[in-house]
Amino acid sequence: MERSMIGVTKRDRIRSEDIRSITKVEDIIKKIRQLKWRWTGHMTRDSRIKWTKILTEWQPRDGTRKIGRQAKRYMDAIRKIGEATWSRKARDREEWKRLEQAYVSQDTLISLG
């Protein structure tokens, strides 16, 4: 879409980052990661018991997923940056905000998980 906005094709061999700096369009993958990180912090800090929190923290009884299911869960990417104590870190807004940058700036070639 951004290439068509400025009339550039793949044959012109211009990098996506360069095109993004011209069009000033925000990287959608980074925006999705930022929103996911913020929602997780918001959900964790909420003291009420909600179904979103229960489903996010749910673990299957046998610990494995069925064949054909995705290998990663919603929280796997959060645990990768926030480590095992991610829920404790989420309660500290300043710490959580600092970790947000590390989560958002991960290599964009890695799947969202």
Rank of each mutant, 00 (worst) to 15 (best):
L112H: 10
V104N: 01
I22N: 00
M43H: 02
I29P: 05
L55H: 09
R88I: 07
K80N: 07
M75W: 10
S21Y: 06
R79H: 07
I29F: 11
E83D: 09
Q59E: 15
M43I: 04
R88K: 09
D27W: 01
D62A: 11
I22W: 02
R65I: 11
S111D: 10
S16L: 03
E57L: 04
Y103I: 09
Q59A: 13
K72D: 10
G41M: 09
I78L: 11
S105M: 15
E26S: 12
I6R: 04
V8L: 07
Y74Q: 11
E83V: 10
A77R: 03
A90Q: 11
P60G: 05
I22S: 01
T85M: 03
D62H: 12
G82E: 01
S21C: 05
D76A: 12
D76L: 15
K31F: 03
H42T: 08
A77T: 01
I49C: 00
S87W: 13
R61Y: 08
D46A: 13
K89G: 01
V8H: 04
A71T: 09
I78V: 15
T108R: 15
S111R: 14
R11V: 11
A71M: 08
K66A: 10
Y74A: 11
D46T: 15
I22R: 02
Q59L: 14
K30W: 02
K80S: 06
D62E: 14
D76M: 14
K50R: 05
I29M: 11
K31M: 07
V8N: 02
E94K: 06
S16P: 00
R65F: 12
E2H: 12
R93P: 04
K31Y: 04
L112N: 13
D92I: 09
P60Y: 02
I110N: 12
R20Y: 09
D12P: 07
I6Q: 01
R79C: 09
K72R: 14
K97W: 00
W51A: 11
T85A: 04
V104L: 03
S16M: 01
A71V: 06
E95M: 05
L99G: 00
T44N: 02
T44C: 02
I54E: 00
V8T: 04
R20L: 12
D62F: 06
K66S: 10
Q34A: 15
E83K: 12
V25L: 05
W37K: 13
D27R: 00
R13Y: 02
A102P: 00
G82N: 02
D27E: 00
I32A: 09
G113A: 14
E94W: 04
H42F: 11
K30E: 07
I81P: 01
R38I: 06
K80L: 13
D76S: 14
S4E: 14
A90H: 07
R15I: 04
W96M: 01
D62T: 15
R38K: 06
